[in-house]
Each structure stands twice: as C-alpha cells, then as structure tokens.
C-alpha cells in the first residue's frame, strides 16, 4: 500500500487524524503528514481516511 498526501490541497479538517491516527498527523501548520508510509497499517483505515478527506488530499494505491 502506498499513501500519498498533498498538503497544498489539505484544508486541515483533521478527518484523517480522527480516522487513522497511526497513519496521519497534522504538522505545525495543521496540514496533513503521513506518519510512516512504509508501516503495515491496515489499508482499510487509509482508504477510509482518503474517502472522508473533504479536499481529496489523500490517495492510496496498492503496491
């Protein structure tokens, strides 16, 4: 699973952090960062975060 985020699109709503706190965080500017892209986190949580993100800032691709 590969997670890519686009902080330029992020509107800081924090849906990703609420959904998958092991995968996503908000940096000092409140914008999305991926905590550990390589970690074997459940793909379903990543996909849910991508679906909930209001600004389309998260994409998840299968390896």
């Amino acid at each position: 699973m590969r997670i890519t985020v686009d902080p330029a699109r992020c509107v800081g709503a924090g849906q990703c952090v609420l959904t998958a706190p092991d995968l996503f965080d908000q940096d000092d500017d409140g914008l999305v960062t991926v905590l550990d892209p390589a970690a074997g986190a459940p793909a379903v949580a990543a996909r849910e975060a991508a679906a909930l993100c209001p600004s389309g800032a998260i994409s998840v691709a299968a390896d």
Partner: peptide
C-alpha cells in the same frame, strides 16, 4: 484565511 486559521483547530490543539 483558512491556512492562517488551520493551526488553531487541529485535532491536537
């Protein structure tokens, strides 16, 4: 405006 405000409303904050 939004970018200026976001840091005040993060989940952690």
């Amino acid at each position: 405006f939004r970018k200026t405000l976001i840091p005040e409303f993060t989940v952690r904050k």
